[in-house]
Amino acid sequence: MNATKAENGFNWQRMVLKLYPFFVLGLLLIFFGVLTKGTLFSSRNIKNILESSFQYLIGCMAALFIFAQGEQDFSMASNIALSAILAAMISKTSVPLALVVALVSGIAVGCACGFLYARLPIPVFFLTMCIANVIAGFLGPMTNYQSVKTPVSMLNLDNTNLKLLVAVIFAVIIYVIYNKTTYGKYSRAIGASPVVARLSGINLSRYKFAAFVFTGIAAGIVAFFSICKSGGASKATGTMFHFNVMVAMALGGATTGGPKVKFRCAVIGPLIISVLTLGMNLARIPVGMQNLMKGVLFLAVMVLSDRLSRFDVD
């Protein structure tokens, strides 16, 4: 009798739905591993995967709080461009100071967004888009529409081990804050129901503000390593960053706000994108076909996510 099926304890469907981003990553690794006859797993390519994941890992982990609150930050790309340009300008004086400037600039923009988000009754989408446009408007004249070069010595900081160390430290800090402090828990509660959250004694303004401070910090870090890698900054630095963070989070399983936004989403999503991109490049798949495959994968994940939302899977 069907009625008794569910009583048998372990439910495969639930487990697959709950962990589907891991399955997607696993399948991609196997698929491209076979297609490239194992080349994907060479130390150089593993390094490439980690290298290309770095900025989105930082961006996704910081954006966890905003995603948990059911919102998104569309100002991240402009924030990265501004922070990168300012850091590049100051890097000629002092490289450590460039890092400080990148962080301060990123946090300042984050604070401005957070303050307006917490105070104004404007949807975040419009608010952060407007801020992104305001910043973009300044960047051209600020740089005379040219890229700002950094000292050659900064290229030495474009080091995979250093990035790995930064990513791990950042991951540990975000993991603890997201899972072990009231910031993470309250953010998820706000995303699930701001009304109940408020009536449970949560100060919405404070946590809405804090969420943008995290993305501001991420913008600063990404901006600094971006100029280390490219040797300069321009108004195009960070283009589409927020969009890629959104896609990575969705591929990682965070398609709605609230309790379903897990820390693992921010780790798995960027890795999926990196493996997919590198795998397709190694398999010499034409660019048009690459876009098609990305589109199909994204669609499949969205369908899975919709199925997931109908289940009581946390």
Partner: peptide, 16 residues
């Protein structure tokens, strides 16, 4: 709509 969060675990609702 105002007392509990439906799409949220029971234990976390209790502890908020």
């Amino acid at each position: 709509t105002e007392a509990i969060i439906l799409q949220y675990p029971i234990d976390e609702n209790i502890c908020i």
